[in-house]
Amino acid sequence: MLSTLEESGGCPISGALQTLSWSVLVLHSGVRSSVGPLMGVLLVSNMGAAIADVINDALVAESVQKERGKTKGELQSFVWLALAVGGVIGNFVGGLALSWMSSTTMFAIFAVFAAGHLLFSSFVKERSFNFKSLSRQRKKNIDLMEKSSSAIDVLKVQAARLMDLVTLPDIAMPLAWFAASYAVIPAMGGSIFYYQAQYLHIHPTYLGLAKVMGQMGLMAGSVLYNRYLKGSSPRKVLLAVQVLLSACMLSDIILVSRMNIRLGIPDHLFVLGASAFAEAIAQFKVLPFSVLLTQLCPSGSEGSLLAFFMSCHCLATILSGYSGTYVASMLHISVDNFTGLPMGIFIQSIAALIPLFWISCIPATTHKLAAV
């Protein structure tokens, strides 16, 4: 399916969808004040972003086929480092801009960036990335597209190949662990954010800086992984990340119980510390797992597998959000009542440790599988 998307110009489609959605927000103020139309526009924008992410993953996955020995994992680390740097700059500049720009102006800037993406991607072809040779599987995909008279036929064949791949035990078991490691955690981030903003009245500037600090943590984690951890056992790395994630989640109890005040730490400084890094750690976990999948995947199928993996990640995150909403409802957490929030944080932190019971699904060492 990745071959079909790439050859049909997926990046221009992505840019067009995002340009359209942000332009609508700029030109029609009524859309911004109505929940239904606003959700529709944001859905279109997110679809465009998702298409771009899929193609980026495919390009990275195809490029890492040339990595050998000590260079394995370096490209993914560099990509995550670039992502973190972009996040730091974007959150910092965006936080400053919000203090003197209207939302309409901000939406217009987003639309201009999306239009630039559309223009640039329209002139960039996959062959310009100078891949020296196509894999045997990739050549089969292209030959199939040339011979087939129907895109549906191509998608059916590609979907069947993807199913054959993801049902392999060596692929299915790690994928199941990773998806479950997110899905079993009831996400309390929304409740914690409302507590910080509505109850503690922490200035939005500090909440924005917390995002910047989290992205800086992600940047540091990417460098640390590339230098010291990429050769380590993937099972040990993911186990350590999961434990660290649980600890950072649990640290929010210090804020909710007001223990930080007794320790002389102001609220706005505390959110710039451990509270800011839980989200960054959850993002960082994708890096070692994507490296693991690339090492396990048969040559020629990396792009499709990485795209499927990110889809599983998104689905697991959605399930985590819904379960977090359910837990918040059961504990009667609302904008006016945060008495149950410490228990919600504790449940979230303990749930983050549950995947450790089946950490054996992650291989201690890796080996490349034969082509499907």
Rank of each mutant, 00 (worst) to 15 (best):
S135T: 13
S135F: 04
L175V: 01
N141R: 11
V157L: 06
R138K: 13
P174H: 01
M173G: 02
M145A: 11
A183R: 00
A160L: 12
P169R: 06
K132R: 15
R136W: 06
L165D: 00
R161I: 01
R161H: 12
D143K: 14
D143S: 15
D153V: 04
S133K: 14
F178A: 01
Q137A: 15
A151N: 14
M173Y: 12
S149H: 12
R136T: 13
A176K: 03
W177A: 02
K147P: 02
A160M: 11
A183W: 00
A183F: 02
V154E: 04
D153Q: 09
L134M: 12
M173C: 09
K139D: 11
S150H: 11
S148I: 02
P169H: 06
P174F: 02
A151Q: 14
L134K: 14
R161K: 15
S150C: 09
M173Q: 12
V166F: 07
A180G: 04
S181R: 01
F178W: 02
V157C: 03
A183Y: 01
L168I: 10
A183K: 01
A160R: 14
L162Q: 04
D164P: 03
K132F: 07
V157I: 12
K139V: 10
Y182S: 03
Y182W: 10
I171R: 00
K139T: 09
A179P: 00
K156V: 08
M163K: 13
A179T: 03
M173W: 13
L155T: 10
A160C: 09
L162G: 03
L144Y: 10
E146T: 10
R136E: 15
L134I: 03
S149I: 04
R161Y: 07
L134C: 03
A160F: 09
A183V: 03
R138N: 04
L165H: 01
Q137S: 14
L134F: 06
A172Q: 09
S150E: 10
T167N: 10
A159Y: 08
L162I: 06
A160Q: 14
D143P: 02
V154W: 01
S135L: 10
A159M: 09
N141K: 08
D164N: 15
R138W: 05
V166C: 07
R138E: 09
A180F: 15
D143C: 08
R161N: 14
D170M: 09
S181Q: 03
L162T: 09
D170S: 11
K147I: 08
L144V: 02
Y182M: 06
P174C: 03
S148Q: 08
S135I: 04
I152E: 11
Q137P: 01
D143H: 14
I171T: 01
L134E: 13
L168M: 12
L165T: 03
S150M: 06
P174I: 02
I142A: 04
K156F: 07
P174R: 00
D170L: 07
A172D: 05
S148D: 05
L144K: 05
D143N: 15
A151F: 09
S148H: 05
